[in-house]
Design a protein around this nucleic acid. Structure first.
Lengths: 193, 193, 193, 193
DNA sequence: TATGAATGAGGATTCATTCAT
DNA sequence: CATGAATGAATCCTCATTCAT
């Protein structure tokens, strides 16, 4: 389907070149169509990249929801580790989508701002909800030192942010090493005893 | 001096809008001159933003070198804390420069690529050198658990990356809270006892 | 067809004003379109004027080939005369194309250099080939004094160059008078007795 | 003297690049001054190139007058030959000035038109005057076939035009060969017997 | 003389977009 | 669906020129 191919190429070029340099013309060329044909599927550039962004978020959500569902009977340590790991794996397996996501998440052109901020907040809330459950359980079951849950969530999100950034920066091998080191130190910092 | 004002406005607009939207025309307008006047001082857009980038790096280096110099007789914990803190403070005190720096460091237009990558590596080496000294001392003096120095450096840089990202994301208050939490957990993870 | 109209206007303005003053804007205006529309047909200014130049050469070639073909059973004198005459007539009948051709042939902007030089050499070879045949026959049949063929060709091309220059300089009447005088003297110089 | 150096560089760049590409900025750079300094000596670009052109003409006049003066007691053949030869030698010895002269003489930007056309006509009259004398004498003394003097002058000027063009086209060696051949044929065409 | 600073005018080019077909 | 043609707006950049110093 042409509509999807356009979206994929748009995502790819967004990752490579950023929003302004991902020209409709260059997208069309790579898809193998002429520029105006894009307008048969999308209202304009903004509309196209909103679709790209929504797909990007959906993709992530789906993946993480799935990975969480597979973890019902695990320890808190396993769940948290799996959570960071899954996010990493997801991004590692789809570097293009990650790069595209970063472009949009960090340096969104102002036109897209409002819509994106909305979905962005949804994502934060989604994580917050899940982490709230996990950390509450972790403290109740004595796996984690008693400390304000707000703080635990904040610090975990900070860990994920750090890892996300490194994901973007370093090649896979270097990243994986750092990932494990950071995780151990993080867990040592929060676990009981 | 007009030349500097141009550079400052360029930096500001880079932070706000990114490279492509920081038009020479809009820069000129904000400076209060006409577009072609910019060419009396810079060879072109690329040249201008390279100057911006070099200033940005110089500024950071200078600041960090200074803060390191003021720390000669501190404990390892103090030094590491101060290091993250100083970087945070620097970026917090110059949010504009930070945003501009991120734009260039992460999503550099390919024209600027080579020169920037060079200076970027220099920065990495600079940090590496300093951390090598600190962690070696930390282990020798028994402040830090004996573990591979390479790993310690890697994990510290990861911490800084995470904090750097949050710096960009959250407002000052929220950031500062997270900063302390993350730092504590990090230190608990590496310190002896 | 707009594409051809653009080429024609470009040729006209090239003749009148030269390469740099034949602005895409002024060409577009004369065609009755807006400047960017030109890019729907040509990759850029250089591309457009290369097309103009190729047309110019094709036109000349076609004309001369045709005129040579119509001359199979003529005397050598008739053929040579017809050759200069045809070139003159061609240029006289299309003064615009001639002027444009001169602009490109003599004072080509360096960008166009390589391609043009190639086609230019082709033209030289084309004339050389034809003249070689004519002069060989001229000497064998005793119409022309026995002398090195290379020299005859060189001197004939020199005559054509001179006439070409005058063509550009003088008005039609003055030119035609000079043409006949020069031809007679030239022929007297090479014919047998 | 800076004023002269500017003029010389302007002439050189005119020869190399033509009027529009011979930028005041590039001239200034080559001279070793800054662009506005040119205005200390010339009213503007047009003024500068008018000066260049006048120098060019003066130079030629001077040279030819001199060469004519040295020829008082020669035969008509010698005089005519010397005349073409001198013009050729002049241009061969100053190829830069020749190229510059051609740029101005043929494809003058319209601004310069009027002034240049005036001096150009002066030059024609100058030659006409001299040739009138020579050919009259040539016929009276029986060196040249009796024929209308107007025609002889016209045909001689045509010869010179042709040679001038070739001068520009070919390298020195090739040109010199052609020159002699053309001259012989020309003289054979006009001389008595 | 010489120049640093500034500029109006204009040039090629790119881009998102429209519209008739 | 797809596209050829066209365009308004904007972009970077160049140039001749001016003017205060």
């Amino acid at each position: 389907m042409t509509k999807n191919k356009i979206k994929e190429v748009a995502c790819k070029q967004l990752a490579e070149k950023g929003y302004e340099r991902a020209t409709l013309a260059s997208i069309a060329t790579e898809v193998g169509i002429k520029t105006p044909s894009i307008y048969a599927f999308y209202k304009g550039k903004e509309d196209l990249f909103m679709a790209v962004y929504n797909d990007l978020l959906d993709d992530q959500f789906q993946y993480i929801k799935l990975s969480m569902a597979n973890l019902k009977n695990a320890t808190v340590k396993q769940m948290l580790y799996q959570m960071v790991k899954d996010v990493s794996d997801y991004h590692l397996s789809k570097p293009e989508k990650t790069a595209a996501y970063m472009r949009l998440a960090f340096f969104l052109p102002h036109e897209l701002n409002d819509d994106i901020k909305k979905t962005f907040n949804e994502k934060e809330e989604f994580y917050y909800e899940i982490l709230l459950g996990i950390f509450t359980r972790g403290i109740e079951q004595g796996e984690i030192k008693r400390q304000p849950i707000e703080d635990l969530i904040a610090s975990f999100l900070c860990l994920m942010d750090g890892i996300f950034l490194e994901l973007y920066y370093y090649e896979e091998d270097k990243f994986k090493r750092r990932f494990e080191q950071t995780w151990n130190i993080y867990w040592n910092g929060i676990c009981k005893e």
